[in-house]
Write a protein that binds this DNA or RNA. Structure first.
Length: 296
DNA sequence: GTCCAGGTCGCGC
DNA sequence: GCGCGACATGGA
């Protein structure tokens, strides 16, 4: 039974879903022909579901359909859990009013975002986003895609009607995985130990990542908690802050360094401080200012 | 072979 | 606090 989830305008579903590289990371995928977002989710009941999302023409709502491949329909609780996860993934409840107000002061920037961009895709759990973020460090984007693909294919639960599709592995499943498997088959390199340790901390209850999503902790405490994850440094912590909805800090990496150098320093190598200062006037929205900075 | 990718850790100072 | 080498992997 399709379920309709509303979102404040302006919102461009197809563009927003594709604005972040996360759309390329399993188990999520984008079906271009039908403009559908699709992924396999393991609900807390243990049921493995194929979720599909489209938008209504006006883009004031998205439409969710969950396939079980079984005769038994989803329970009310299962359906609500999936809808809640989707709202989080698409950031349907985030408020971008002051971002758009600020964006209006820059005509080229405003032109780029005014159709309803800014709601960058994220994963249903912060655990999944943390693992994926660790897989972006000190490697190429192509290798990140491959690492996550193998992680999902090897350790995630299959969707029975199409066993080629898998859910993202739970912390428990990842914690139970042999370190040698992470190294030799998933090929996470030295990140294997980081991912394994994080999974064990989360699975044991020693670390509660998901509670950081409720927004009750002060921002610097959220940041400190993220940096206490082994394998998460300044770049990864700020990436995760962005994924949690805090856009005030920039995730400075080789990609950003090269973009800002070309765009603002005419090829002369600026210091990190100079790079970060470029977006100062954007205050709490620096990350999105960088993300949607028009090339010329 | 060397260097580097959307970095981070642990060390010495 | 800052500088520096090590770290798995794969492509140029």
């Amino acid at each position: 039974m399709p379920k309709k989830l509303t979102v404040r305008k302006p919102y461009d579903f197809a563009q927003s879903v594709k604005d972040h590289g996360w759309i390329e990371l399993a188990p999520v995928r984008w079906l271009a022909e039908s403009e559908r977002l699709q992924w396999v989710e393991r609900v807390s009941s243990g049921r493995v579901v194929l979720v599909e999302v489209t938008s209504v023409e006006s883009d004031q709502a998205v439409v969710l359909t969950a396939h079980t491949g079984e005769a038994y329909a989803l329970t009310v609780n299962e359906a609500e859990e999936i809808a809640g996860k989707l709202r989080w993934m698409l950031r349907l409840d985030e408020e971008f009013g002051s971002f758009y107000e600020l964006a209006k002061s820059d005509p080229a920037f405003w032109r780029a975002v005014k159709g309803g961009r800014g709601r960058l895709l994220r994963s249903p759990t912060l655990f999944e986003d943390a693992v994926k973020t660790i897989c972006t460090t000190n490697t190429t984007w192509r290798q990140t895609i491959n690492m996550v693909d193998r992680l999902v294919a090897r350790l995630g639960e299959p969707y029975a009607p199409d066993p080629n599709l898998h859910a993202f592995p739970t912390a428990e499943q990842l914690a139970a995985a042999d370190l040698e498997l992470l190294r030799q088959e998933v090929r996470l390199g030295y990140r294997s130990a980081y991912v394994s340790q994080l999974a064990q901390e989360v699975a044991s209850g020693e670390r509660d990542l998901e509670s950081l999503k409720d927004g009750t902790l002060p921002r610097d405490e959220v940041k400190r908690e993220l940096k206490s994850i082994k394998g998460v440094g300044e770049y990864a912590a700020n990436t995760l802050m962005m994924l949690l909805g805090y856009y005030g800090e920039l995730a400075l990496d080789s990609e950003m360094r090269s973009f800002v150098t070309k765009r603002y320093f005419d090829g002369r190598a600026p210091s990190d401080k100079e790079i970060l200062s470029i977006y100062d006037r954007w205050g709490e929205w620096k990350y999105l200012a960088y993300w949607f900075d028009p090339v010329s």
